[in-house]
Computed example of a mutant assay.
Amino acid sequence: MRILVVHNYYQHQGGEDMVFHQEVNALRGDHEVKEITFKNKTGLRGLLQFLSYPFNLIACYAVKKAIRDFNPDVVHVHNIHYASGPMIISTIKSCRIPIVMTLHNYRLICPSATLFYKNSIFTNSLTENFPWTAVKLGVLDNSFFKSLWVAFTYWIHKKLGTFHKINTFIVLSDFAKSVFSKSTVDLPGNKFVVKGNYVVDPQISSRRRSESFIFIGRLAEEKGIIPLINALKGTSHFLKIFGAGPQQSEVEHLTAGAANITYFGFQANHVIQQHLVEANALLVPSICYEGMPMTILESFALGIPVIASNIGILEKMVIPLYTGLHFNPFEKRSITASLDQWQSLNSSVKDSICANCRKEYVDKYTPVHNMSMLIAIYKNVILNTKQS
Results as ranks from 00 to 15, higher is better:
residue 1 M to R: 11
residue 2 R to V: 06
residue 7 H to Y: 04
residue 10 Y to I: 04
residue 11 Q to W: 08
residue 17 D to H: 14
residue 26 A to W: 00
residue 27 L to N: 01
residue 29 G to Y: 04
residue 32 E to Q: 09
residue 35 E to P: 03
residue 44 L to D: 15
residue 47 L to M: 14
residue 63 V to D: 01
residue 77 V to N: 08
residue 84 S to T: 02
residue 87 M to R: 12
residue 89 I to S: 07
residue 90 S to M: 13
residue 94 S to K: 05
residue 99 I to N: 02
residue 110 C to E: 05
residue 117 Y to H: 03
residue 125 S to T: 03
residue 129 N to K: 11
residue 133 T to Q: 06
residue 133 T to C: 05
residue 143 S to W: 04
residue 144 F to S: 11
residue 150 V to H: 03
residue 151 A to D: 10
residue 152 F to T: 14
residue 154 Y to C: 09
residue 164 H to Q: 13
residue 167 N to P: 01
residue 169 F to T: 12
residue 174 D to Y: 11
residue 177 K to E: 15
residue 178 S to L: 01
residue 186 D to H: 10
residue 188 P to R: 07
residue 191 K to F: 06
residue 204 I to E: 03
residue 206 S to Y: 11
residue 237 H to T: 03
residue 241 I to M: 07
residue 249 S to F: 08
residue 254 L to Y: 02
residue 256 A to I: 13
residue 257 G to C: 04
residue 293 P to I: 09
residue 295 T to I: 13
residue 312 G to V: 08
residue 313 I to P: 06
residue 317 M to Q: 15
residue 320 P to E: 03
residue 342 W to N: 01
residue 342 W to V: 14
residue 355 A to Y: 13
residue 355 A to W: 07
residue 361 Y to N: 11
residue 373 M to P: 00
residue 375 I to L: 14
residue 378 Y to F: 14
residue 388 S to E: 14
